[in-house]
Amino acid sequence: MDHIVTVQDAVTAFEPWMEPTDAELDAIEAEMPVIRAEMELLDAQIVVIDRTPCELDERRIRRARRRVLAAHRDQVNGRSGQTGGAA
């Protein structure tokens, strides 16, 4: 017979000392343009998941893909706070 025991890490997973550091929060903030662009692409893909995309849907997906690429490019080039030229 197996005994059920709690795992200490799971019990203490939300201790105050386990909060993200300032450096981790800054890294997340720097990635936010990429995250937003990827969320927009995902939204566009979800819209057409159960139907055939029309021309406007295809345009929306293409624009979202360009925004993701532009956000990645800007992040690599060190311009994560600025918007890219792709629209």
Rank of each mutant, 00 (worst) to 15 (best):
R36L: 01
E15C: 06
M1V: 14
G84F: 01
A64I: 13
E24G: 00
I28R: 03
V76T: 11
E19W: 07
V7P: 00
A44V: 12
D9Y: 06
R63L: 01
Q75A: 15
L25K: 07
P33I: 03
N77G: 07
I61H: 05
S80E: 07
E29Q: 10
D2S: 12
V48P: 00
V7F: 13
M18W: 12
E40C: 11
D50E: 14
V34P: 04
T83W: 11
E24D: 04
G81N: 11
F14T: 09
L56M: 10
A13Q: 10
L56F: 09
M32K: 05
T21I: 05
T21D: 07
A23C: 04
F14E: 06
E24W: 00
L69K: 11
W17T: 13
S80G: 06
M18L: 13
V48F: 00
L56G: 06
T83N: 08
Q45G: 05
V48D: 00
A30N: 03
D43R: 13
D57Q: 01
V34N: 06
A64V: 09
R63I: 04
A23H: 10
Q8F: 01
R63N: 12
D57F: 00
V48K: 00
R66G: 15
E40A: 14
L41R: 11
A64S: 13
T21N: 02
D26A: 15
P20L: 14
D2Y: 11
W17H: 13
T52F: 02
R65P: 02
Q8G: 00
Q82A: 13
